[in-house]
Every structure is written in structure tokens, then in C-alpha cells.
């Protein structure tokens, strides 16, 4: 992968390079070159559209994990003002894999929680690749409950390979931290709007994703298990991750069809990392519209509807008991 290109984008790379070359050479008087440039640009747009309209699940996984993909702090910068990060769970420590804080959305006080990946190796080590420990979830819950006390809405940005599977995480109750967060979110008396921006990795994602509205970015995925993990268990080899990715039906469209998410937000051509500002603008509009809808509901109604939303999820057949 060069300059942030993914292997399936290869046909585009050469074309884009020629466009760049031509652009640097062409002067405003050179009509011939200008015409050629126009032609190439049209071709590039068409090609990009063709590639991105037929993405496989695995290609979407690659986009969702793209190192240049905007992460939580990038979105926070575009979406909010006056962001103040709050740190620590007041019990054990500070977890940099999960960011939580207070901010204003269009002037209005809100709370923000979100997984944070790094871009460089050094950043990723500091952020533990966006995989929180229990103290991360406990901090998130603390901040969400703080928001509840002041009647402020909560915005959650989900982007994690999963909760961290390590010795310390187990010693400090990873399972309990996730379970508690899920239960408490189901009864917070303020609006909760969730965006799965990249990877929605299992329980580690769900722990901050129990919302009144749950949206996914077009190339995000949200799954019960990583494709690699699933492949290693059900196919006996991680190399079958591509097959597992298809079988798990975890793309944004799949989840919309299954009734798990409320909507799929279109991404800029080539993915959110090609134009983070536009992506953030789409998210911003969605927050505004959702808040306007949720503001009309009394807290009791809000909580009941949120609980009913999750109580209704699942697929089974029901027969009269014998």
C-alpha cells in the first residue's frame, strides 16, 4: 500500500499519477493538454465509482481499517467546539484507547465518547490500537452519567478492533465493565446517538453503542467477531478471513437490512479519509436531525423506546408450546 492506496484501487493509481503530471505541466494556454486532463479526470471518476460500487466485504474491512481513516479525535475537531477531555475512571487508571469528554455541538452542551486509534506505530502503542481496558469503559460510563445528570445528550463514535484481551484487562473485569456499560446505557435518561465510524469490534464496540439512533458510515463494519477470529474458529485458519467477512454479513447495508442500524451515511468518493471534512459535515447534519427528533421525547419515553428497540432485535421462529 503506497500513499494510502489499497490494492484494489491499483487501476486508479496510474491514472491519478498521469493526471497529477499533466496538471503540473499544463499552462492555462495549453488547450490540448487541458482537454486531455478533462478526459482523464472523467475517466478517473468513472473508474473510482465502478470500483467503489462493487466493493466486497473484505475490501470494506480494509477501508474501515485504513491507517489514514479519520479517527474519533479528528471528528471531534470538526464536529464540536470547546472540547475538554476528561480522563480516568476514578478507580484504577486512564485509558487512552477510549476518549471521553465534554463539548458543545452547535453551541449546545453534549458529552462525547469514542474509541481512539493511532496513526503511527508510536501513536498506536499509546492508544493500544483502539482496544480499551475496563478502565476505559468505566471512564466512558462515568462521563455519560455525568451528561445524564445535566440532561445533556451523548454522542458516541465507535471504532475499535475490540476490547483488549490481556491479563490486566481480565484481572480488572473486562466482562463486567462491558456488561455494566451496556445495561446502564439502556436506561440513561438523555438522547444517545451512535456512529460506527470504522471498525465495530464486538462487545468492545457495543459497550458504547446502546443508542436511540445508531448510524454507520458506508464503509464501516460492525460484527460479533473479527473476520480473522471467525475464520480461525470456523475455518481453522485465519487465511479464510475473506470468506468469513462475507458470511458474517457485517457491512453497513447488511446491518441496515437486519434492522440493527438506522441509516448508512454516504462516504466521500474513495472513502472518508479522502475528505474528512465532508464526512464530518454529513455526521454533523445527522446529529442535528436526530437531536431535533429525540428532543421531543420525554425521558421516560426515550428510555422505553431505546429498551424496546434492543428488545426487538433477533431472529427466531415462535410456535405455540406443545
Amino acid at each position: 500500500m503506497q500513499d494510502g492506496w489499497l490494492d484494489f484501487e491499483a487501476p486508479l493509481v496510474e491514472l491519478e499519477r498521469r493526471i497529477d503530471d499533466l496538471r503540473s505541466l499544463a499552462t492555462s494556454q495549453d488547450l490540448q493538454a487541458e482537454r486531455e486532463l478533462e478526459q482523464l479526470e472523467r475517466k478517473a471518476v468513472g473508474l473510482r465509482r465502478r470500483i467503489f460500487s462493487g466493493l466486497s466485504s473484505w475490501q470494506r474491512v480494509q477501508l474501515a481499517r485504513h491507517p489514514r481513516r479519520p479517527h474519533t479525535l479528528d471528528y471531534i475537531e470538526h464536529l464540536f467546539t470547546d472540547f475538554v477531555e476528561l480522563q480516568g475512571d476514578r478507580a484504577f487508571g486512564q485509558d487512552a484507547a477510549l476518549v471521553a469528554g465534554l463539548a458543545r455541538f452547535q453551541g449546545r452542551p453534549v458529552a462525547v465518547v469514542g474509541h481512539q486509534k493511532g496513526r503511527s506505530t508510536r501513536e498506536n502503542i499509546a492508544r493500544n490500537f483502539g482496544m480499551p481496558h475496563p478502565e476505559g469503559y468505566r471512564k466512558a460510563l462515568r462521563v455519560m452519567q455525568l451528561a445524564e445528570r445535566f440532561g445533556n445528550p451523548i454522542i458516541a463514535l465507535v471504532d475499535t478492533p475490540g476490547a483488549y484481551p490481556g491479563i490486566g484487562a481480565e484481572e480488572r473485569g473486562q466482562a463486567e465493565a462491558i456488561a455494566r456499560s451496556v445495561r446502564e446505557m439502556s436506561r440513561l435518561r438523555v438522547p444517545i446517538i451512535v456512529f460506527v465510524t470504522g471498525e465495530g469490534g464486538s462487545g468492545g464496540a457495543l459497550a458504547i453503542a446502546v443508542g436511540d439512533r445508531v448510524y454507520m458510515l458506508a464503509y464501516a463494519f460492525y460484527s460479533v467477531i473479527s473476520p480473522e477470529g471467525c475464520a480461525s474458529i470456523l475455518w481453522n485458519t485465519r487465511e479464510k478471513a475473506v470468506d468469513a467477512a462475507e458470511a458474517l454479513k457485517f457491512t453497513a447495508r447488511d446491518l441496515e437490512a437486519l434492522g440493527v442500524v438506522d441509516g448508512v451515511l454516504p462516504e466521500p468518493e474513495g472513502g472518508a479519509h479522502r475528505d474528512p471534512r465532508t464526512m464530518a459535515a454529513t455526521i454533523s447534519e445527522t446529529i442535528a436531525v436526530s437531536l431535533a427528533e429525540l428532543d421531543r421525547l420525554a425521558p421516560d419515553v426515550l428510555v422505553r423506546q431505546r429498551q424496546e428497540r434492543f428488545l426487538a432485535m433477533g431472529a427466531y421462529h415462535e410456535v405455540d408450546p406443545a
Partner: peptide, 26 residues
């Protein structure tokens, strides 16, 4: 744990059971 074969719907059972437990506690 969650059953992989039912994908995201299995994950959502965590939210379902926890929401019902919140009501029980309330």
C-alpha cells in the same frame, strides 16, 4: 460467548438481555 453464525444479531442479544435486567433492577 455469542454465536458467530447469527452475526450481529447475536451481539445484540447482549443489549437485549442487559436492557431487560435494567428493568428488573428498576
Amino acid at each position: 460467548g455469542a454465536r458467530m453464525h447469527e452475526g450481529i444479531l447475536s451481539l445484540m442479544q447482549m443489549a437485549k438481555t442487559c436492557a431487560e435486567l435494567a428493568r428488573l433492577q428498576d
